[in-house]
Every structure is written in structure tokens, then in C-alpha cells.
Design a protein around this nucleic acid. Sequence first.
RNA 1: GGACGGCUAGCUCAGUUGGUUAGAGCGACUGGUUUACACCCAGUAGGUCACAGGUUCGAGUCCUGUGCCGUCCA
Length: 907
Amino acid sequence: MEKAYQPKEVEDRLYHSWEQDGAFEGHPDAEKPAYSIVIPPPNVTGVLTMGHVLNNTIQDILARRARQQGHSVLWLPGTDHAGIATQTKVEQQLRKEGKSKYDLGREGFLEHAKEWRDKHGGIILKQLRKLGCSCDWKRTVHTLDPDYSKAVLEAFVRLFKNGYVYRGKRMVNWCPVSRTALSDEEVIMKPQNGKLYKIRYELVDSPGEYLEVSTTRPETIMGDVALAIHPQDERWPSLQGRKVRRPLQPAEIPIVADDAVEKDFGTGMLKITPAHDPLDFEIGRRHDLEIIDVFHEDGTLNELAGPDFAGMDRFEARKATVEKLREQGDLIDEEDHANNVGFSERADVPIEPRLSEQWFLRYPRVEEAKRAVAEGFIRYFPNRWSKTYLHWLENIQDWCISRQLWWGHRIPVWYRKGEDPKDPQNWHVSVDGPDDPENWEQDDDVLDTWASSWLWPIATMGWPDESAMKQQGLDYFYPTSALVTGPDIIFFWVARMIMAGLEFKGEPLDPKSVLSDEEIRKRIPFRDVYFTGIIRDDKGRKMSKSLGNSPDPLDLIEKYGADGLRHGIMSIAPKGQDIRFSEERIEQGRNFCNKLWNVSRFRLMADESGAQPSVEEILQRIDPAHLNQDDHAILLRLVQTLDEVDRLYVEYEFNSALQSIYRFFWNDLCDWYVENSKSRMRGGEGKETCLAVQDICLRQVLLLLHPVAPFITEELWDVLGFAGGKSIQWVNPGNGQDLANLIEARGIVLEDRALEEMLAIRELVTSMRALKADRNLANNNRVEFFYLAEEEKAEVLTRHTSSVLSSVGAAALNRVEEAPAGMPALVTAYGSVYMDLASGIDVDAEKARLSKELESLIKVIASIENKLGNASFTEKAPQQVVDGARKQLAENQKKKQETEDALGALA
RNA sequence: GGACGGCUAGCUCAGUUGGUUAGAGCGACUGGUUUACACCCAGUAGGUCACAGGUUCGAGUCCUGUGCCGUCCA
């Protein structure tokens, strides 16, 4: 074996062989319980980020653990066509070539985009393989695949037929860069420092008299069609019905009264621009006002803005209109003003409220979606996210699902040529289109990407095609077992998948029907949802490509190995908390792998014939006569650890599970058991038994660790001889009881007190080492010690003397009846040890040290005595707590006595 | 403005139903190549658990309020 673990070769070789063996393939198997996960599909042209590493490592852990436990596992991978993101990238590329999408035309552009996708897409799926992800790659799905597209259109058609989908002219969020409508969820509110302008409007019937209006958007004044006041505002007793003159693009506009006006904001008077503000739009509708849209779709001003401003960009126009108003004397005041502005999620520019014709969806199954989570059919980890989810559903708004893009699923609605497209009489809505296509024109828009990905759990498994569903095992694998995703897409994706599952999985539903609990259980897309934290950099900022603060995971794999990366990231990922990234933790992950490698190496050096595949076989090598307290203790700890880890995996407490494995492996097994075993390796007699115990421990550690570190565990599984031709992927680690039963069946009774003894002996050894270290004595300096303790404890110590001597690096440990004079000492719960120094000691320093110790003991004793002296404590506290305190008091009093003895012996 | 989360050792974080003297890793310091591992071993130092009240025999843990940081929704 190599002296250090070399991940690279192992990873490539093993991944290849796993794939070759079809280990990741998920098939329905009536003999086994199903376990399934659908991957949150990354953008097809995306590259692996630390967020993906976290997210997919968790999914892989779940999948691999389930495989070990005998489930038939499907982890279904795929990619998302990511409408706006991908189209933007392709358009940018075209622009570099001096072309626009219009040069290519719709068909040509789509051809081009597909080529681009095929060339640059799917990189991330290759990267996931490097990470070790055990996805069933044969079942990779892309949201623009023909079958998937059909499912998307089918869903639209069904929703339309059931009256959930409608078309309407509404105020929508418009992105002037992407030139498309967006859903509310795609708008990000950001606080901005702008200006509040006070502008005067002249009263038509009273020249020279002005009204003052505050606005943040002077560039829309040309679209003003009224001023509005609150009907109960006493400041303006007689304005209603009168007119003012619009200061730009002059025209006479009315003054209206409306309850929606905020009396306290600005001057209490509002300019009404129905085309450019949702509230103004509502007010305009109530008062039957005209709508003047002064913008083009790209955010430049149009001819209605007048010759002074037409063609200008909206931000430029803001400055220009202010300037013009100033010249005219109509600008009264301007002041700094902080407000929230909606930004386009993708293009990161302020969105424009814009009136346009769009398709909307009234969500189906909202009530059942609430029940699904509120009543626990779907469990959220951590549960607090259910509150966020429910709050959103309580306030749900219709979903604008049409996008003015080409890259996506084209809306399956056709309009009869030459007829009024607004009249539903002239619509054809179907998946395959009309039989006489020459007489029809298809809608230009495509569907929001999320209106395809919300079908992910069903459409990746053949829905709506009956035979495909059967073949792909939808009924076997659905509902999927767990979904692992970030809380940032709880509305975009999680909530919508739940509604889509409830609506579409199973028999078609009447819109007025209400699902029973039983139906909800069958239709939900997943049972558990695990929300990961967000990965931040060392300064606490979100890792993002634009900030350039995210390391490339592939570099990290190169440097520390995939297992090291996985182990590192999982060890710092507490459930549902944000994660502060630190490369040191990844390094620790690599170190852990190396430790595992080396202890295995040590094991084989002792006996290169290796181990046997089953615990039963290994147990046969144990000679009960040679089984010592150390063996008992480590096996007990192993049983404990197996139970603990089992429980923690079930609760998605991955970092705690890892910590538990780490503690057992590194502290108990390597630092203590294996170190102690070295003398037995030499001695001969207990060697075989000791190696067998080591083998059981190593075997179980590898099994427990395999989901987190699949490569090194599979490699060592084979190297150490546990495999016997069977991959570690298919072997169940079992829980503590399982192992305890096997040990018992071999006729071995584990003694519980062995653990306690071992801990006491460890404390003693630590004290002895500290005595040496304090005086800078080398480990191999064989000093003599004396030991002072009562009979019972001395007896235990005698049984462990040889291992204590070798652990400490001591020549002797002799029992004495009273404190030997002039020696440095340490007092433990198990007695006092004195170190015999050949050279003299610094009496003052020793006194100081022991006095300090004594002082703290006195404090502790006082505090316990105080507690026990309190009648209400002894009466009200549980008996075991009171007993514990008494025991503790006794121990400390003894320690105090011994410390005083040691002090006395110094003088 | 509302909701949620965080505040524990120099740093990053554990700490499950309240119950011994609050833990780990990293970093710092001291010493060390003994049959695996310097990606290692042994040891040492370092904490008024954000603050203020309250409940309790007992609070890092429960309650109320305050502050700062972060996220989401208006």
C-alpha cells in the first residue's frame, strides 16, 4: 500500500466499475422497498458550484445509505432548459458575432440555441460523476426532451380545460432587458437611494395657482392622466372635478378622489399614470381613465413621450425630464429618498410595471397543498420552513406563466387566422395542435421554466403516458422518498411541485373536488424535504459567480480528493443552517481519509492475510480467553456508535453522524485501542483476537462511512478483505443491537463496566503523560511512577498496568500506602500518581500547581455542598440527580484530601 | 412594517426533553519520528454562553424585552 492515500486513481477506477456494473440503476423490484430521489435539475449550461456539492453530496449519502440497507434505489438526474438564463447566454454569444435573434428568426434561433446547448450543456453532469454521485445516468432527463415537453403541454391543456388558465391584459413585471414578463417570484426587492421630486401642476380654471405632487418617477409624467387625492383629505375641500395642466406633453387632466391615496405620503396628492404603476392602474380603472404607455418594451421612451424624450433610455429620461421641469420652473423641490425597487432576478435591472396581454394560472389544489404540509404528509427538515411555505400559500397570487421568449415550451394555443384573437371562440388548445394548421397561428410565447419543472417528479417517470409510467416505475418510486434543495426555491419549485403532484398524479380531478387524506398521501411528490443551508464565504457573503468568491469544486477534488471534499463539506453543514465555507475543513476531510488509509495499512502490516467478509467469520477468530477489557470497551463503543449513527442518519443530522463516527474512529479506535494493541501485536498470545476486534471495528466504520466517502471505503473494503467479491454498496451496516446479537451468539458477554474502567484508565494515563510533559520529558523517557489508591481501584489498575506503562512511556508503576515525599503528583478520580524524578524538582512550582488545583476543588465542593444543603433541591430534584451530586461530592472530597497529602509530601 | 434564523474559546461551529466542573476541529504555545499516519502523536493555555429582566431547587438550554448580523415577505 502507498504510504498516503492517493484518491485520483482510486476514484476514476471505482466510478467506472460502479457504472459498468449498473450499480446505480434504479429498477422496480417487488421484493425490495423503494427509495427514490429526483435531482433538483441544474441549469443545462451551468457548472458545478459549492452549493451543488453540498446538495448532491447529501442526496448521494441518502441514496447510498438506502442501497446499503437493501432498498431498490433510484436517483434520477437531469437538467433544466432554464429559459431566460439560457436564452440570455445564447443572445450574448450572438451579439459578439454581431447578430441578433431576429436575424436568425425563431426557427433558426432555436436550432442555434440547441446546438449551443449540446455543445456547452451537460458539463455539470460530468462534474457530478467526479463527485461520486450515484445517479442512474441512463435515465437522465432534460426539460426540453420530446416526452417531457409533451407532459408540459398536456398539463397546460388540462389546466386550461378545467378553467385554471386564463388570458388577460394585466399589470405584469416587465424586464426591459430580457423583454419578457416575469412572475412575482422572479422580482427581487432592493432598497435604493433615489430622489423624491416635488412638481407643480397648474390649475386650468385658475391660472397661476398650482398643486404640488411628489413622485419618484418624473419620466412617466407624460403618461399622467389625472391627479388623485384622498376623499377625506381636508386640505383640498373643492378640488374634485377640476382640472390641471400636465407640465410635460401639456394636456388638461382631471382631479379624482380615491381611497387608495395615502394622505401622509409626500404632499398627499398623487399623479396617476395607469400604464406604469399597479396602484395607478387600479385607480385609473375605477375612474375610467385613459392609459398612456410612454415606454417601448426595451425601456426606452416612445413617441407618446414627445419629441424631447422619445428614444431616450428610461434612466436618461429621468434626468432629462427633471431638467426640463427645472427650466420650466415646475420643479419645486427634490430630496433624497430611500425606497424599494423591484429588480429582475436574471438581468438585475429594475423591472417596469407594464400592461400587457399574458397567460395566467390560478393555482390548483392550494388547500390540499397546505394540508399536505400542515398535517405532516410531507415533512420539512428543518420544520420551520413549513411556516414560510404556508404563509406564501395563504397569500398566493395567480401565476403569470407566459414569457416573451423563444427558448422554452411554446404555449399550445392557436388562434384562427383573420379572427379576433381575444375571443376564446377563435382559440384552439391542444397538445398536438389543430388538424388544419394552415388556418391557425400559434401563440408566440413560451411557458415559464418553472411551469415545466414543477412536473419534475412525475414527468421524469413517464407521465402522462400510461405505458411509459409503467415501464419507468412511477407507481413504484412515487411519492419520492426525499427532496434535497435550498430554501430559496421553496416558492419557485417546492410549493409548485406539491400542487402539480396533487393535481396530476393519479386520476384526473374535477376542479370542485376536495382530496381525501388518503389521496393526498398518494399524490404528494415526496415524503421528506431537506432544506440545505446556503454556502457563504469566509466573510459571510453568499457564494456567487459574479463575486468570484466561490472556489471551483473540481480544484478542491484535485487537491483533497472527492471523499475529502464530501467529508469536509458535510462536517460543516448543520441541518438547515447557513454554512461558512473554509478550505481548512476540506483539508480535514482529506486528513480523515488518510488516517483511515493508514490504520488499514497498519492492520495489514500486522497480518497481511486480511479479514473475512462477515462479522460471524471474524468473530470466530476471537479466543474468548484472550479477550481483555480493552476489547470489551471498544466493542461496546462500537455498538453505541452504530446506534447513534443510525439514528442520526434517519434524522438527517449528517454532521453529527460524522462527528460520532470521527470520535469512535479517531479517539477510541486509533488513539487508544490501536495504540494499546501494539504491545499485543508484539506479544503473540492475544494478537489474533486483537486483530479480529480491529477488523470488526474497521469493517463497521467503513460501512458507516461509505455514504459519505464512497471511494476510499470501497477501496479499503476490498484491500482489507471484507469484500469477498461483494461491493460495500450492498452491505448493511446494521445497528448496535444487530452487532451485539452476533457477539452474543459467539458466546461472548460484553461487560458494561469495561467502558467505565477504560475511561478511568485513560484519565490516569493522561495525568501521567501530563506530569511528564510539564517537565518536558520525552515520551520515550521511561520514568518510574508511584500510585496511591484504595484497594478496589488498585485492583483494576493492576490489570491494566502493562498497557498503562506502554501508553505513558513509563518504566514502573508501584503501589504505595502513603504519599511519597518530594515528588510531583496529580490527583484523579481513580487515585493519585507520583512521578519519581531522578533529578530534583522545583518545589515551589509544584506547590503552586497543586495549590491552584486545591483551590478549584474547594470551590467545587462548596458549590455542591451548597446545593445539597438546599432542602428544596433534595426534595424536588429527581433522585438520580441528587445521588449524582452526592457521589460527586464524595469524589471531590477524596481528591481534595489526596491533593493535600501530595502538598504535604512536597514539604 | 411583519416573519424566521444567528449571537458559546482567537477562528468555524457542536451542545436532543432544563440537571455533574460548557465540548470539538482549526489556530497558538510546549515537547516528540516508540511497528500505520507530520495529512501524525502527547500535552498546555484560552469561555462573565450578545445584553437586561423573569420562571425554577437548578438556565447556554424555557419565557419577556433590548441590541447587532443575516434571510424571506410586504
